[in-house]
Simulated assay, not measured.
Amino acid sequence: MESSAACKRIIDANLNRSKEALRVVEDIIRFEYDDEELATFSKSIRALLGSIAKKHIDSIEHRDTQNDCLTKVTLKEEKNRDSLFDVLIANFKRTEESLRVLEEVFKLIDIDSSLLCKHARYDTYILEKKVYDRYKKH
């Protein structure tokens, strides 16, 4: 099984990305919509990712933010949002994409974590649909 520095950097970046995006989702659901059920659902997915991050804490050793070729690149689409709902949806997409990356890379080093990321991605799809159905009218 492969456990290269590149894999560790990918894992570190995508665990951070998915947890950060879920925090945004959770806070909007909590503070904009005051929806305890869906905020708790989001929090449970984030907690699962936290447990995976603890298991793979050594990935931080390979972090190299200063030399990452994309840390200074911001696309036009990333600069503006029209509403909190747009922020919410953008962060759902960010979460889903990063969970897919984690699922694939973990297949090289930890199949259990890969499966957990797959389930977290599906749970995120479910959460996104519930939020969309309840709050798209806002």
Rank of each mutant, 00 (worst) to 15 (best):
R46T: 11
S83L: 06
T71K: 15
F106W: 06
S114P: 04
I57K: 14
D68E: 07
A120P: 08
I60T: 09
D12E: 14
Y33K: 12
S44C: 02
I45T: 08
V73T: 12
K107V: 04
K93S: 08
T74H: 10
V25Y: 00
E96V: 12
L115R: 13
D123F: 03
S113L: 04
I10D: 09
G50A: 06
A13Q: 06
L115W: 00
Y135F: 15
E96I: 15
L75A: 15
D133R: 10
N91Y: 05
T71I: 15
T71L: 13
D35E: 12
A13R: 01
I126S: 05
F106A: 03
T71F: 09
K130F: 11
D110Y: 05
F85Y: 15
R81M: 03
D133K: 13
K55R: 15
T124E: 05
V105F: 05
A53D: 11
R30A: 13
E61T: 12
Y132F: 12
K76F: 02
E97I: 08
K137R: 08
V24M: 03
K43D: 13
E78D: 14
L48A: 13
D12P: 00
K130E: 11
V87Y: 03
T95Y: 02
T40E: 15
S114Y: 01
D112P: 00
V101Y: 01
T74A: 11
E26M: 07
S42P: 05
D133Q: 14
T40A: 14
F41K: 13
T40Q: 15
L70T: 09
V105R: 03
I45P: 02
N91Q: 09
Q66Y: 04
L116Q: 14
T124K: 05
K79A: 13
I109P: 00
T95K: 02
I45Q: 06
Y33H: 12
D112W: 00
K93G: 00
E32H: 07
A90Y: 07
K54F: 07
Y135I: 03
E2N: 10
A5W: 01
L22Y: 04
C117K: 02
Y122P: 01
S3L: 11
E103N: 13
V101N: 03
K55E: 14
S18V: 11
M1I: 12
K72H: 09
I60R: 13
K130T: 03
S59Y: 00
D35P: 07
N14Q: 08
A47H: 11
I29A: 06
K54R: 14
D112G: 01
Y33A: 06
R17C: 04
R81Q: 06
R81I: 12
K107D: 01
K79F: 03
D27S: 14
L116Y: 02
M1C: 08
V25S: 08
F85S: 00
D133H: 10
R94T: 08
A53Y: 06
D27G: 02
E26D: 10
D27C: 12
L70Q: 05
E96R: 09
A90S: 15
N14C: 04
H56N: 01
L75G: 13
D34H: 15
T124M: 10
R23A: 11
N80H: 13
K107S: 14
V87Q: 06
V105T: 15
D133S: 07
E37P: 00
K79L: 15
Y122N: 07
R134C: 02
A90R: 10
R134A: 07
V105Y: 09
L108E: 15
D27L: 13
